[in-house]
Design a protein around this nucleic acid. Structure first.
Lengths: 336, 336
DNA sequence: TTGAAAGCGCTAACAT
DNA sequence: ATGTTAGCGCTTTCAA
C-alpha cells in the first residue's frame, strides 16, 4: 500500500497533525520538528493523497482555466503556463472550453465551481471582458485571475500595454514612410479591440496624421474577416499603403487577398498583425507583429491567483512587456 | 450545506448504498427503486462530491491526456474531444505536457498515475509510438488509449489509414500530370512518418513511377525543416514538379522558400501537406492536404478508454476516415 | 508548539 | 434486491 501521513508521523516520531502542518506550511511548527518531518517524508517518498486532502479540507486545491478563444496557439501557450505553475504549487488544473455567447455561461461556471469546489479561476479574453461574469464572481467571492483583461475594474491578473503596442506599430509604419495606414479592428466582444484601435489612433496623432474613418474596418479576429476587410480597403478610391490588422489571423487573410490581386508585400502594401502566433513566421513574407509573452503571462496570472486564494486581500494586476517583432511584411512605403 | 447522498436516500426512502448503486449504474436495483432515487436526486439537485467518491472508491474517475506535440491546433482539437467525452461520462480530465526525450518520462508518468490514481491515459503521437512506454503501461495494467498509434501492437484507440491517405495524395498529383514527386519525411520518432513514406512509395508504384531516393528528404515536422528540405530539393540537378510534405508545417516552409525564389505555386511546383491544420487555409495559396478528424478521434479514443477502464477486456482500435482536401497549392504539372 | 478525536461524503465488503 | 458497517487519508476542531 502507499505511504500515508501516519507512516511519516511514525517515522518522524510526531503526530499526524504535525506532519499535516509541515506539509501545508503552517507556521506553528518548531524548525527542528519541521526538518525531521520533511526528512521522513522525503525518505518515504510520501505524496499526500489529493482526494483525501480535498475531502477533509473542504477545498479542491484545484484551479480551472476557462477559455473561449479561437486561437489554438494562444490557448496552448496559456495552458502550459498554467500547468507548470500549478504543478510547482501543488495545485491541480482543470480546463474548460466555453461558449461566451451561451446564455447559460454564468450558471455553467457556477455549477462547475460548486461541484468541483474549484478554488479559483483563470480567465482568458474575451471572458475577461464580460462584466456580468466578473460581477457574479465577485459577488460569490470566487477568486479569479485574468490574462489580458481589457477593462478598468482592477482585479488580479496580467496585462500588456496593448494601447502602447498598437501605437508603436503605427510608429513603425510611419518611420517607413507610410501615411495612409489602415486598421482592421478585432472582435467587438474583446476589449483588446478597443485598446488596439485607440493605440492606432494615438499613433496617427503622434505622427501628425489625420484619422480617416474610411480606413478603419470592422473585423472579427478571423481569417475570413481579414479577407473581407482587405477587399473593402482595396475597393477604396485611394487605397492604403499599409494595413495593420488587430491580430495575426486577420493579417493572413489580408495577405491572401493581396497575393491574389498580384500585389507585392511589402512592395505595394505593408501588412502587420498582433499576437506573434506561430503562423506569423510561417506565412510569406513573414509577418511583422507584436509579441505577447503568453506563457509567462499565464504563469504570472496563476501565481497571483494562488496568492489570492490563500489571502483574498493579496494578488495584484501585473504588467508584462510586449515587443514589436519586425519581419518582412512591412517595408518602405511605395515611392519612398 | 450542500446536498449529500444521505439526503437523497432519505427523500427516496432508501439507504445510502442504494442511492450509490443507482448513481453508478449498478444493475442490481429494481426499476421502480431506481426511478424513485433518480427523481429524488433530481429534485434535490444532487451532485456527488468527486473527492469523496475518489477517496472511498480508491480511484479517481480521472483520465489524463498526455502529449508532446508541437502542433497547438492538433492538441487543442484533441483536448476538446477528450473534455467533452469526459464530461458526458462523469470523468474528470487532467492534461500533461511531456517531453518525450526526457529519460525520466516513464517514471514521471508512473508517479502521475500513482499519485492522482489516474484511471486511464490518452496518448497522442509520438508517445503512441514509444514501445518502452507502452510496454510499461501494459505491465502495470494501466488502461491507455492511443490517438493515431503507428505501430502494430493492437491496443485500444483510434487510427487513420495514413498509408492510404499518403498514397491517395500521390495519386492526386499523378492525375495532375506530375512524375517527379518529392517527399519530405516527418520526424523519425513518429511512426506516422514511416507510414506516410510507405504510402508515398506505393502511390508511385501504383502509377508505375520509379522511386528515386534523391527525392526523399528527412524532415522533422517543423517549419524550418521544411525550408531546409525545399532548399535541398531545389538544388537537385533535375528538380521535382511536386513536393509532398509529411505535414502542413513543413509544407509552409517549402512554400516560403519557393516564394523567395520567385517560383509560382502551383504553376512551377505543386506543394501539399498532411493534417489539415488551420494554417493550411491561411497560407497562400491555400494548401492541399489530408484532413484528419482529430476531435472525433479524441472523442472515440476517450470512449474506448472509458470502456476499458470499466472492463479491461473491452475497448477496441477504431478506424476513422481521412479525406483528401484539395486546395490551390496543387495544380497541373508544368507543360501539361 | 503539539496531539487526540471527530469527521469530510462517499463506496467496499459483508450482511440480510 | 437492499441495508449495515467500516473505513478511504486527510484536515479540522479543540484540548493539552
Amino acid at each position: 500500500m502507499r505511504v500515508r501521513i501516519e507512516d511519516v508521523a511514525k517515522a518522524a516520531g510526531v503526530s499526524m497533525k504535525t506532519v499535516s502542518r509541515v506539509l501545508n506550511n503552517e507556521p506553528t511548527v518548531r524548525d527542528a520538528t519541521r526538518e525531521r518531518v520533511q526528512a521522513a517524508a522525503k525518505a518515504l517518498n510520501y505524496r499526500p493523497d489529493p482526494s483525501a486532502r480535498r475531502l477533509a479540507g473542504r477545498r479542491s486545491y484545484l484551479v480551472a482555466l476557462l477559455y473561449d478563444n479561437p486561437s489554438a496557439s494562444y490557448v496552448m501557450e496559456a495552458l502550459e503556463g498554467v500547468v507548470e505553475t500549478c504543478q510547482a504549487h501543488h495545485y491541480g488544473m482543470m480546463v474548460q472550453p466555453l461558449d461566451y455567447t451561451d446564455p447559460e455561461l454564468i450558471a455553467g461556471i457556477e455549477s462547475l465551481v460548486a461541484i468541483s469546489k474549484i478554488d479559483g479561476l483563470i480567465l482568458t479574453p474575451p471572458l475577461t471582458d464580460m462584466t456580468a461574469l466578473l460581477d457574479r464572481l465577485d459577488e460569490l467571492n470566487i477568486p479569479h485571475s485574468c490574462i489580458s483583461p481589457n477593462n478598468r475594474r482592477g482585479g488580479i491578473g496580467v496585462t500588456l500595454q496593448e494601447h502602447d503596442a498598437a501605437q508603436d506599430m503605427v510608429s513603425h509604419l510611419v518611420e517607413l514612410g507610410h501615411t495612409r495606414i489602415a486598421h482592421i479592428k478585432g472582435h467587438s466582444a474583446h476589449g483588446a479591440s478597443d485598446w488596439r484601435l485607440a493605440g492606432y489612433r494615438s499613433g496617427l496623432r503622434r505622427a501628425g496624421l489625420r484619422y480617416d474613418p474610411a480606413l478603419v474596418i470592422d473585423g472579427e479576429f478571423s481569417f475570413d474577416s481579414g479577407r473581407a476587410a482587405a477587399e473593402a480597403l482595396l475597393a477604396l478610391p485611394e487605397r492604403p499603403t499599409a494595413i495593420f490588422a488587430a491580430n495575426d489571423d486577420m493579417a493572413t487573410g489580408v495577405m491572401g487577398v493581396l497575393h491574389e490581386r498580384g500585389l507585392s508585400i511589402p512592395g505595394d502594401i505593408s501588412v502587420c498583425g498582433f499576437d506573434d502566433t506561430p503562423i506569423s513566421r510561417q506565412v510569406f513574407p513573414a509577418l511583422t507583429t507584436i509579441h505577447q509573452p503568453v506563457r509567462e503571462m499565464a504563469h504570472e496570472a496563476t501565481l497571483q491567483l494562488i496568492k489570492a486564494i490563500k489571502d483574498p486581500a493579496s494578488g495584484t494586476l501585473v504588467q508584462l512587456p510586449y515587443a514589436l517583432q519586425a519581419r518582412q511584411s512591412t517595408g518602405p512605403a511605395p515611392g519612398t
